[in-house]
């Protein structure tokens, strides 16, 4: 049986290409520490940062990106921490939005690239593609600043929130289906952990 769009599916059809919209939204994020969720989100962040050791990209452990970023943000209160993930990855640990709101780390920024799809597994429609509103959920959890980006015109304000805002925020970047920027990389987690810690902590 086909899955039907719900009454909550009121946002306009996505028009942005993530290969352009993600770099435009993030701008120069070299001063951030970042955790990126599998799969496209991690690929594009590693590509855009040119494999910076300050980006920890997940290749498994779906749902880890946001809780991991919360732990990192609490550990590094003087650094801004970016959680960059996809809609399906976040859907797996949606409750972490409530945890983020309760802890309210002022240095944490959450960016969700929403293609409305399970992109890695055959492009099946995800809940968000059918009308689940994670921006509304984020606001309902108590995230103090929530922004939805549907068009290129809306990107500068979201980029300003990301870079110049002084508190926890959630940005939903709605994009069309399509590939993320990517490069071939080492998929093993332990060298990535060691590299991240060496760059940040010197050990």
């Amino acid at each position: 049986m086909q899955l039907l769009k719900m009454q909550t599916a009121t946002l306009p059809d996505p028009v942005l290409d993530r290969r352009e919209a993600v770099p435009a939204l993030l701008g120069d994020f070299s001063s951030f520490l970042a955790v990126a969720g599998l799969a496209g989100a991690a690929q594009e962040l590693i590509y855009l940062s040119q494999e910076s050791p300050s980006v920890f990209g997940l290749v498994g452990a779906m749902g880890a990106a946001l809780p991991m970023a919360i732990g990192l943000a609490l550990a590094q209160p003087k650094r801004r921490v970016l959680c960059h993930t996809g809609d399906a990855e976040l859907l797996m640990t949606l409750g972490a939005l409530a945890t983020a709101a309760v802890m309210n780390p002022p240095n944490l920024r959450i960016v969700v690239v929403d293609n409305g799809r399970f992109g890695e597994t055959g492009n099946q429609q995800s809940h968000t593609g059918l009308g689940t509103r994670i921006d509304t959920i984020a606001a309902g959890c108590g995230i103090p600043a929530v922004m939805v980006v549907n068009t290129a015109d809306e990107i500068p304000a979201a980029r300003a929130l990301l870079h110049d805002g002084d508190g926890l925020c959630f940005i939903l970047l709605r994009v069309k289906e399509g590939p993320a920027l990517k490069l071939r990389r080492d998929l093993r987690a332990h060298p990535e952990r060691d590299r991240f810690r060496r760059a940040l902590l010197g050990k």
Partner: peptide, 26 residues
């Protein structure tokens, strides 16, 4: 210290890894 209520235990597993990345013990 931070007391961090979780909605499910798996959040805590990832949070501990994030704390370690940032040099904290959890």
């Amino acid at each position: 210290a931070y007391a961090i209520p979780l909605t499910t235990e798996e959040e805590g597993v990832a949070m501990l890894a994030g704390a370690d990345l940032g040099g904290s013990r959890a």
